[in-house]
């Protein structure tokens, strides 16, 4: 059995109110497939934070989720501004979110740290002016 189940989502960068929909959909799919709650929680947190970041910092992008036999891989791609200093962005509490975003509850500077904490591996490929691709793996 080496079938890989794949999900693809276009994440709208102009609609804050629907942000998180792809993550909620993935969560429901994983639940229907019978994955344990702790795995679903990790994938939900990591994907939600990444999805929100694409919406609030990069005007949207795409989310791909691959369910392998031994791992779940989440790939988030955007063509936003890129992250100039990844080490700084990874620090808890660092945020460039503006006031209009903060009033919605974003901007704690905990998204990237959460993504790292709740996944088994996380890779950030980013180029200023071109975009960011984040690949996260949760082992099963």
């Amino acid at each position: 059995m080496s079938d890989v189940v794949k999900f693809h989502f276009d994440v709208d960068g102009h609609d804050f109110s629907s942000a998180g929909e792809a993550s909620v959909a993935v969560k429901q799919k994983l639940r229907a497939l019978g994955y344990p709650p702790d795995i679903i929680r990790k994938v939900s947190i990591a994907m939600y934070e990444g999805e929100i970041n694409m919406v609030i910092h990069a005007s949207g992008g795409t989310a791909d989720v691959e369910v392998h036999e031994d791992k779940i891989v989440i790939i988030l791609r955007d063509t936003g501004p890129g992250i100039p200093n990844v080490e700084l962005a990874m620090q808890e509490g660092y945020s460039t979110a503006r006031e209009n975003i903060r009033v919605l509850g974003f901007g704690a500077g905990m998204g990237l740290p959460n993504m790292k904490k709740y996944t088994d591996s996380m890779q950030i490929d980013t180029t200023v002016g071109q975009g960011t691709t984040i690949t996260m793996t949760v082992n099963l």
Partner: peptide, 16 residues
């Protein structure tokens, strides 16, 4: 318990 009334709250409640 929160004072945030927007849809993002519902997404977080659903995911958690």
């Amino acid at each position: 318990i929160t004072i945030m009334p927007n849809t993002n709250v519902i997404a977080v409640a659903s995911l958690t």
